[in-house]
Design a protein around this nucleic acid. Sequence first.
DNA 1: TGACGCACGATTGTATACACTGTAGCCAAA
DNA 2: TTTGGCTACAGTGTATACAATCGTGCGTCA
Lengths: 244, 244
Amino acid sequence: MGDGDRVSQTERATRAVRALILSGEFPAGARLTEVSLSARLDLSRTPLRQAMERLISEGLLSRIPSGGCQVASFDLDDVNDAIELRGVLEGTVARLAAERGADPALMAEANGVLDAIDAAFSDDGKVDFDAYVPLNAAFHELVARMAGSALIEREVSRISQLPFASPSAFLRGQELVPGFLASLVCAQAQHRAILEAIAAREGARAEALAREHARLARKNFAFLQKAGPHLTTRIPGLSLVKSI
Amino acid sequence: MGDGDRVSQTERATRAVRALILSGEFPAGARLTEVSLSARLDLSRTPLRQAMERLISEGLLSRIPSGGCQVASFDLDDVNDAIELRGVLEGTVARLAAERGADPALMAEANGVLDAIDAAFSDDGKVDFDAYVPLNAAFHELVARMAGSALIEREVSRISQLPFASPSAFLRGQELVPGFLASLVCAQAQHRAILEAIAAREGARAEALAREHARLARKNFAFLQKAGPHLTTRIPGLSLVKSI
DNA sequence: TGACGCACGATTGTATACACTGTAGCCAAA
DNA sequence: TTTGGCTACAGTGTATACAATCGTGCGTCA
């Protein structure tokens, strides 16, 4: 059927185009046509077409009435809205997990991830960034499953697909921020508090905490704005955000 | 380019398959293959394939590892989760509208819709149901736009696409429910209160109201459960819900 | 000089042929 | 009787050819 460990052409096309968009090679508003892309990626139009369809539903592309697609363009409000929405969804998951009771195995796993994050902080005031980022992502994915609802989990991961709404969105690039270590310490404290609230069946607290936690991304984003436009090419997906 | 007022084959295929699923002709879990469907609908596989892709992203279909798709199957928890999620999203829109200030033109239009709903209630204790349902849908769509965020509006309409999560989901079929008129009166009171809270910039109240308002759908759904399985074929999409 | 119409090019929509893969069923051998 | 392998079939993945349509530019006529 064509999907052992060999990826399908459709999958290849999706990844390739997504990478080209996120890297900034296709800037916001750029027009993409099937034929030119199929020539560039050395694929036929059929899998490419499916790939574009997927990217449209991911929100990275949008249809042009006159035919073709263009790379999506977001403004500052869009970024903030996306982050807000992720906060709301993660907050809902946390609340439902608290109200319904979360799977103990998931809770244990999540606590284990937080222990690992703690271990990434060393005593000399440094942090192992390359360890932190995937652990942070793993924690958020675990939380997303705690409501026990595949439907809600899907929507959380959906919104997190947006390059600037993901929990890991603006972590890369924060290395140089003054006080970023303190920010990470606060984030980790919030992680702990969220699990604590879920365990204690404190739904309202869990929801509020998760929402506030997402707000950190806004802070990080605001910093990147001030830091200047030279970061546009370094942070994947930032090229899609206009007027930075 | 293929879309004047004549719909494309892809669009035709999408509607046809969606209708077949919602009508219950394809029951939950039924396996659908491209070839058999293309033969049945007298289309080639290409547009059909795209249609199935869309329905997958809508959540009505899901891929089978061994190839092909099957009609999605939902249980009671899924229905409640979807309704909960819509409540959360509409609540977020209402809160943001209150916090940011809603477009006066939208507010006026929404108030107009509510006046029209009032008019659908006649003095003799009856209600014009055929008028109520589309007006109710229109109100919810207007509210979804009030946060001024295309991104959030899209997610609201996305979740509302699920046949049992839409604001109009279980209205049809309620005609026979004892006390359904009272329920509609309460719903309308909530509509008014939501707009009032938005206008007064009472974000928390607007959010709580919108969430609670969505809960009415749960109540309606619970009634349909008790009413028995003979409604499965009458309410579109109810055939997807298992163990009813 | 302006406006209208025609034609061509660009681009997507659709159909179909072919290839590849996974699976089920059957037959033979131990 | 059971197990191994082989074969046939079902089904999707992909490529490509052809059709339909829209925009654009140029030419001509008033």
